[in-house]
Nucleic acid binder design. Structure first.
Length: 429
DNA sequence: AAGCGGACCAACCGCTGGTGT
DNA sequence: TACACCAGCGGTTGGTCCGCT
């Protein structure tokens, strides 16, 4: 049950006025708020992360009084507040990569997001679901002909919790567990004869059936990072086997992208020179393992990644402008109060025209390292600073919230609104 | 202009697995 | 070893915007 407060915000209401969804609360009877985040809440959370780093999300509520559960805080940070987030529509290259990755990984959104710098799993998931619906409506196969899902039967634990109704329409034909075709196959694309396997399978075939991630079949010990899926030549690590069915980006394009990366990065960097930025030092990956993806990465991978970052930095020559220069700082948009004409529902930075031109280059370089994907992308130095920050803060009581912000952040009169320094950010721990 | 439906997006929910005690 | 806590993942829902009729 949801209750509305005077701001139109929602408060969780359960027995006793507290309904902690994940049972890991410790909020001490505080009514937890639900619904859209406000600028003030964003500021509180950002400030908390600035001071304490990521992780220990449940402590946010305890220590700041923010009426949000830890899960909500983590999600807000990961999807909207953390640096280097890329907003806006997916570029054709990104779309292509998503399709390829989905063919490889299935609905492993987080793993896909790890290979798409600046993109969140939620974004990718939303994109994919929209794509599924659109392609289905158009009667098109989900995957292009040149992309064949690396499909193994996948009746494993996936979808165990999922209500099936939303996927029924996408599976007009039951897929057989041994058929290496997309479980999303539509009538027009379904070439595999139906092999009735009984009612049970008929039922389950209505769900997604994706291969387990390739790493699950890898001889790599579980304590080591899983092997990234093979990628198209333009994105593939030279250490990885070729993926024979795809050619996403030709080498010329890739080369051009690399050649242009400096300019692209410079552009991105320059766009950060806006008033609504604050500086936040990168957490040195060598010093602390970021809590995210901790299931996957090992110290070795982190260290190797960090070492490789130097190469990336050198290659990209990311010192042309902006606060990247000569410090551990990077800039990120902060609490943008500008409404983007292209996205009126969002409050975006003035430079909301996302520059994705740097993507192929940055991605190629990142992908060239086997462990890059297990480190939060915003740890990278490749110039993927988010200049397209979206915050979806509510407009309501913005003036009040600005006052709260000023109070929270101790913004003095000489500081641009929403601008603060991250110079003192301790290591993410 | 109003209604409708699709697209898009943010956020929530339930669950799993890792980690510490 | 068992348990609790926590972070993270994937599925789902609901709200808003926008184009079409």
């Amino acid at each position: 049950m949801l209750l509305g407060n005077s701001n139109g915000e929602q408060l969780e209401s359960g027995v006793g006025g507290l309904n902690v969804s994940d049972g890991s609360g410790g909020e001490g009877g505080v009514q937890l708020k639900k619904g859209p985040w406000t600028a003030a809440e964003d500021a509180i959370l950002t400030e908390y992360v600035r001071k304490h780093g990521e992780g220990n999300w449940n402590a946010v509520q305890r220590n700041t009084g923010l009426a949000r559960c830890g899960k909500s805080c983590r999600l807000r940070w990961a999807n909207h507040l953390r640096p280097n987030l890329k907003k806006g529509t997916f570029s054709p290259e990104e779309e292509r990569l998503i399709v390829e990755l989905h063919a490889q990984l299935g609905n492993k959104w987080a793993r896909m997001a790890a290979q798409l710098p600046g993109r969140t799993d939620n974004e990718i998931k939303n994109y994919w679901n929209t794509r599924v619906k659109r392609r289905h409506r158009q009667g098109l196969p989900l995957y292009p002909p040149e992309i064949q899902p690396q499909h193994q039967h996948q009746h494993q634990h996936q979808n165990h919790q999922q209500s099936s109704h939303s996927h029924h329409s996408y599976h007009s034909q039951p897929s057989t567990p041994t058929t290496p075709t997309s479980s999303f196959s539509f009538p027009i694309a379904a070439t595999t004869p139906t092999t009735p396997t009984g009612g049970h399978h008929q039922h389950h075939s209505l769900h997604h059936h994706f291969p387990p991630p390739c790493y699950s079949r890898s001889p790599t010990p579980s304590s080591l990072p899983p092997t990234p899926p093979p990628l198209s030549p333009g994105l593939r690590s030279p250490h990885q086997p070729a993926f024979p069915t795809l050619t996403l980006f030709d080498t010329n394009t890739n080369t051009n992208a690399n050649n242009n990366s400096n300019a692209a990065n410079s552009s991105v960097m320059s766009s950060n020179n806006i008033s609504n930025t604050f500086n936040m030092p990168r957490t040195p990956p060598l010093l602390q393992n970021p809590p995210r993806f901790k299931r996957f990465h090992s110290d070795t991978s982190i260290n190797t990644f960090a070492a490789n970052q130097n190469d990336i930095n050198n290659n990209n020559n990311i010192n042309s402008s902006s606060s990247f220069q000569g410090s551990n700082n990077f800039s990120m948009p902060f609490l943008p109060f500008f409404r983007s004409p292209s996205s009126p529902s969002l409050l975006t930075s003035p430079t909301s025209n996302c520059n994705t031109s740097a993507f192929p280059s940055a991605t190629t370089k990142l992908l060239s390292h086997p462990s890059f994907s297990f480190v939060p992308e915003w740890y990278n130095d490749s110039g993927e600073a988010s200049n397209c920050q979206s915050s979806v803060v509510t407009d309501d009581n913005l003036g009040l919230e600005l006052q709260q912000l000023a109070s929270i952040l101790h913004v003095d009169s000489t500081t641009a609104p929403g601008s603060c320094s991250y110079d003192n950010l301790p290591g993410i721990c």
